[in-house]
Amino acid sequence: MLSRFANPARFVRVSAALLPWCAGVSIALILLGLYLALIASPPDYQQGEAVRIMYVHVPSAWMALNVYLFVAAASAVALVWRHPLAEVAARAAAPIGACFTFVCLTTGSLWGRPMWGTWWVWDARLTSVLVLFFLYLGYIALVNGFDDPARGSRAGSLLAVVGVVNLPIIKFSVDWWNTLHQPASVLRLGKPTIALSMLAPLLVMASGFTVLFVTLLLIRMRTDLKQRRIRALQLDRLTPAPAPPHTESGLPARPVAAREGI
């Protein structure tokens, strides 16, 4: 299974077939979700219309965590099996996850203003999600911080695996510290404490966001593979002719490309 999808050429073929479907499904789900969330669902008895922010805020928060888990899992696979596509996947997923985290933080801030009366509080959940955002940024900076891309990928993989310790802290921060942010109301033991008329649009939006992530991931991975291919072709063209010409001193002249390190 793992080695079957280790072939980049096969991945490009399969993903080309999958991509239009994923894109279509994600657009349809998000449009349906937006209709349900903004028009068909009732306003909250306490929060009024502002509750509609939840339909973007909560799915992006779930995605922020799940994408990090994905990055860490792909990194672990890359470290253990040296799977070539896992590294590409981890590197491609991180900026998407950072965007979800940013959306989660901004919508939360917009929601907090009318509900809590403040844009930001140093609440345990908010702080730990902010730390997650910085972890994403650190990962992206580390991956791009080396002249040798392979070293960056390996260092980034290690960091992603180490950073997993942060995930349970975020997930359970609202249960451990009793602070302003409300505790989980959907993914909990027993029945969800949210009305079905609100749960349905939430789940549709969440699945829409998930398929959107897959779509963006496939696009980014394909771009990454194409860039590598272009680089390889350019290097091929720059490799010198078979027999290096000899200079008058008798020493072989080094090709310009090799000297310049292009």
Binding site: G138, L142, G145, F146, R151, G152, A155, L158
Partner: peptide, 11 residues
């Protein structure tokens, strides 16, 4: 992790 990186300090 940052051994050999560009701008190690900031990273």
């Amino acid at each position: 992790l940052t051994l050999g990186a560009r701008r190690q300090g900031v990273l």
